[in-house]
Simulated scan of single mutants.
Amino acid sequence: MDKMKLKLLYSDLKSDLDIIEKELAAAVNSSSHLLNEASLHLLLAGGKRIRPVFVLLSARFGTYSMETIKNVAVPVELIHMASLVHDDVIDDADTRRGRKTVKAQVNNRVAMHTGDFLFARAIEYITGLKNTYAHQVLSHTMVELCIGEIIQIEDKHELDQTVRDYLRRIKRKTAILISASCELGAIASGADAKTVKHLKRFGYYIGMSFQIIDDILDIVSTDEQLGKPSGSDLLQGNITLPVLYVKDYPTIAPLLKEMLEGNISEEHKNKLLIEIRNSDGIKKAKQISNLYLQKALNEVKQLPPNSAKKSLQNIALFMSKRKF
Rank of each mutant, 00 (worst) to 15 (best):
S289D: 09
P52E: 01
R168C: 10
S39C: 15
E258N: 05
F318K: 02
K271Q: 15
V76L: 12
T132V: 13
N36L: 10
H86R: 10
K310N: 09
L9G: 04
E23G: 01
I69F: 04
R97H: 09
A285H: 05
L260S: 02
G231P: 04
L44V: 14
T162I: 00
I20Q: 10
Q211R: 05
I282Y: 08
I213C: 03
D88Y: 11
T240R: 05
K321G: 12
D280A: 06
T132M: 11
Q287S: 13
N263S: 09
S189P: 12
V28H: 09
I274S: 04
R49E: 06
N71G: 14
R121F: 00
N263A: 08
H86K: 09
S230K: 11
L312H: 08
D218I: 12
K194T: 12
A191C: 08
F324H: 15
D16A: 11
T162Q: 00
D192N: 11
G148T: 07
L256Q: 06
I178A: 04
A134K: 10
L177R: 11
E37D: 14
D165L: 14
D160Y: 00
F210K: 07
L34F: 14
E258H: 05
N298D: 13
L159N: 08
L260Q: 00
V110Y: 02
N29K: 11
L167W: 08
K271M: 14
L255F: 14
I219V: 15
V106Y: 14
S307C: 08
R97Q: 11
P242D: 01
N290T: 06
K321P: 06
